[in-house]
Design a protein around this nucleic acid. Structure first.
Lengths: 222, 222
DNA sequence: AGTGGCTAACCAACCGATCGGTCTATTGAG
DNA sequence: CTCAATAGACCGATCGGTTGGTTAGCCACT
């Protein structure tokens, strides 16, 4: 299936496991399924990994590095708010590219494992903690330079952002449309805006259509 | 285990399946596990339900009615905003009572099934659609009477609320603390507030500590 | 009132398939 | 020749599901 050439057997197993776990979860993905997808036999599988669970943990660890690196790269923009916007755009792009199939490995694994498997949960908790911390730091910087409203505590705001994104991905995955996630991200940007003194309600939604940095290809449906 | 007396065998099976599925998901919950929890043997299980999946669907349908009824009951308050606040409080209370174990059946099932099992997904999609519609209606009413800021489209706002709650439940379930969900709900209430003309940033967070209607028992940790 | 028959409800042995995992034999590059 | 890497037969356990048989309560008929 995914069987890319030029990869080592180990890498192909990791890749196949990642793809399948993102769609079905780790529990429902059997060793045989991963083997078949990677074009490998059983003996080979257990030569590279002592157990199914250990492969799962390797998959999580690999994706963790990738994800945290992506966050840092996105947030390292000219201004904190631009960094956050870039991160939003990257996240939306990634899920749009996969057609909203599979969703977020972290959210999925969190809900699948967090009351049953502690090894998996430990890693997932760590990722969310780091993710939230990075967002929190960016928010604090944005508040310091007046780009982000100062009346909301950065830690809570960061947690809210992470929660909304996860929920937005979930809704977009269910609907197989970008709409829900895109809407959540747009609302988050609105929430971050400083409260302008003399601003009156009624004309804030999509105020300047030129300076938007979240790409908005038009959807075919909805 | 849960084996409450006075219930029919069928009800005990539904109950046991609900509890187990909320913690582990439907996939990881075996028929034998449900049988044991309900104090019933295999022959009896398949007398009442033609398959494991059919029991799962019954569980979902039962919880759907319960959940939608709860939403209606909560939103039917003196004012739209009070209704929304009551719904938030009810949701928080429910998850606090279960010690943030198991999370939301709908979010869990969404992520577990939505790219593999279409019967389950169909029900889940319906619940989220109805949930969002009910919130949307309350928001529109709140906007009409000036309780909720008018510059945000009610549909998007409703979707954002649902997404944040699901994400908040996820984070609270991971952390086994009320903090994340509570923070999300508080932020949502802030987001709903009308933009007061002369309000300046800096003193909005937890402004009046007396009129809060979301209960805030103090946490032992965090 | 007694009794034979019917059926909803339950029980437990059993089924093939598949699970995660082991083991031994074989391959092939250095 | 060596040994990392692969192949695939095989293992016990468990999966979802089936089957035949045993209750217990009710209903009809004498």
């Amino acid at each position: 299936m995914s069987m890319k050439v030029g990869q080592t057997t180990r890498d192909r197993l990791i890749d196949a496991s990642y793809q399948l776990a993102r769609r079905q979860g780790f529990n429902r993905t059997s060793v045989s399924e991963v083997m078949k997808a990677a074009g490998v036999t059983k003996g080979s599988f257990f030569f590279h990994f002592p157990s199914k669970e250990s492969l799962g943990l390797v998959v999580l660890k690999r994706d963790r590095e990738e994800f945290l690196t992506m966050i840092d790269a996105s947030l390292a923009a000219a201004t904190p708010l631009q960094g956050i916007e870039r991160f939003f755009a990257k996240a939306l792009k990634k899920h749009r590219e996969t057609g909203f199939i599979g969703g977020c490995l972290w959210g999925n694994t969190a809900l699948e494992m967090c009351d049953s498997n502690s090894s998996f949960t430990e890693i997932v908790v760590g990722v969310f903690k780091e993710w939230t911390a990075k967002m929190s730091k960016a928010i604090r910087a944005g508040q310091a330079c007046g780009q982000i409203r100062r009346d909301l505590p950065p830690e809570v705001l960061a947690q809210m952002i992470v929660a909304s994104i996860e929920g937005g991905i979930m809704l977009s995955r269910l609907a197989k449309k970008a709409g829900p996630l895109k809407g959540c991200l747009k609302m988050l940007m609105t929430l971050l805006q400083p409260i302008a003194m003399g601003r009156s309600p009624g004309e804030q939604w999509m105020p300047e259509s030129k300076q938007r940095s979240i790409p908005h290809r038009q959807e075919k449906s909805e």
